[in-house]
Design a protein around this nucleic acid. Sequence first.
DNA 1: ATCGGCTGTGACAACGTTGTCACGCTACTC
DNA 2: GAGTAGCGTGACAACGTTGTCACAGCCGAT
Lengths: 337, 337
Amino acid sequence: MVSIKDVARHAETSFKTVSRVINGDQRVRPATRERVNEAIQALGYRPHSGARMMRSARSNIIGFLSDRVTTQPHSGDILRGAQQMADAHGRLLLLFNIDGEAGDDHRRRAFELLMEQRVDGLLYACDYHRDVELPPEMQQLPAVLVNGFSTTTALPALVPDERLAAQQATRLLLAEGHRHIAFLAPNPRSVATPLRTAGFHDALIEAGLEPSLMPVITACVGTPGGEEEYRVETALVQLMSEATPPTAILCGQDRIALQLYLALARRGLSPGRDLAVVSFDDQQPISGALTPSLTTMALPHLEMGRRAMTLLLDGDPPPETVTIPFSTTLGRSHRRA
Amino acid sequence: MVSIKDVARHAETSFKTVSRVINGDQRVRPATRERVNEAIQALGYRPHSGARMMRSARSNIIGFLSDRVTTQPHSGDILRGAQQMADAHGRLLLLFNIDGEAGDDHRRRAFELLMEQRVDGLLYACDYHRDVELPPEMQQLPAVLVNGFSTTTALPALVPDERLAAQQATRLLLAEGHRHIAFLAPNPRSVATPLRTAGFHDALIEAGLEPSLMPVITACVGTPGGEEEYRVETALVQLMSEATPPTAILCGQDRIALQLYLALARRGLSPGRDLAVVSFDDQQPISGALTPSLTTMALPHLEMGRRAMTLLLDGDPPPETVTIPFSTTLGRSHRRA
DNA sequence: ATCGGCTGTGACAACGTTGTCACGCTACTC
DNA sequence: GAGTAGCGTGACAACGTTGTCACAGCCGAT
């Protein structure tokens, strides 16, 4: 590899002057600077990050530790957002993904490897919104938690604002004039579920409606993030048999909405026209392929990734959990015909 | 940070001996080794990767350059697979994601940043199977292309075996006794489309059937990887109006299968029972939520990521494009009632 | 007893860079 | 015209590690 000394020789100056040019030191005569830059070009010189690191004790690298599988469908955007902002700040991202496997040991090893690389900070991302137990070592480093929170460790954290999103989603339906709305709740073992239910109720109360009159049915069971099973067909049967069936359904997640679309189609009914549907997540493979287009509250994964990195780099974030609003993806499924 | 000299002081030996212990040199007396290890533990010493790098000219880091958005739904598993094998080989992954934006400039910069980190090798991943134009600089480094190929640069590459997968999918239907099979083709601008069509025909010919008698209808138009529009409803109308309608449909991708499920439901028909359906991709959000469960050929993204990294690390891969077989996710949608 | 080799250890240089300090030159001030 | 400030430059040390070499102590062979 070509080093700073090779450049100096080529530009007929000392290697220290080359260092100055590289680092934008103003006290270099323009003519000299010119010669040095030419030499850099000619030789294809690239500064050696390892050597730099030794002097400066900074690596310009941020570790990205992802619990389980952040590279899965809906959470990959966290990584994408983090990378965008890292790049904007001239940092690189060192990725370490923990696939659930060995668990704590694997995670500890990951952490040590990142420490050896002298990463300047750490992002810890969860594959879905949840409570996460963190290794105490993590306190040694500036770190931000994304898409999760820790009840045992005080750390700045970003989570999606499930409650507000549910309120907004419900408002959409209320604005269309619906007064009988059902909620097909997602997995009861998910942290998001009570929050989304609460937001649903917030909006109802705000509109002067009685929450207890609105059916809430669990439409998904299983392990969050793992195998899940959907019970939308039976839920719909139940809803339709009520004295005054709902005219609108809030689906706790896009997969439930997908099932609802199918169940409606079997009855010759169409979302939007016959029954208003609003959902959560905006998982592209689903929301991009449904007709009529699905109105869904988009999980702010990209934004959380960006914000987390910004928080980490702009320094000194308070160890609090911040909620990030969803954005609204408007389709036709929530409209009255 | 605690350095090797601090450890030496604590263990009352020379820092060179500490270096020997760290690197597993046998010629250290067990008693000395013990003292050194204790000191390492006590001080929480971690070797400085930057300093190591300077001496050894190796970084143990592999660059992962992803064209556009590898962190999107179906291609994130490439990253996951690559990380698994990198970890197994004691390497770390430096991620750089190019979001399409500035394009070539951005990509060149990404490459230079990776070079500054002195990465030992490079993986270049595409978000969907396609022909990719590579910057000539990439030849400077051991590199492997994943989920794409280059007609301009000779480089080892891994792509999914679209043709074989289509043949296997069709065989599933033929094995169930179907003799009239239609193909709802994906985006004609995608590289996968002609290959999947060819595989479809391979299987038909193999079974002694006449390919030209089997309808092939384009069910998706738009920019591959971008905005796409589906035309499944009209395709189904067309198929059903034929003299002898197909008893089985091969869907070019899961999104098409999703639309087909909906179109069938509107007619009171059910996949599997009334019409056999087989698809491609195995996009979890869709395939995991459809009822009856979808039979779909799973894109080997995880496997490609793992193989690509293995190829890169085991060294000296020939500059050829290798195809990786899909795996078959069996559901109930291809079965005769 | 002397030699050669083997084992455990340490002194020192080197990797490529940046920080500190000092030097020589020009240009200004009195 | 001497003193002084500032500018451009270079010599040198230092960062934390590994490679090279040397040396001291011990063993067995001569």
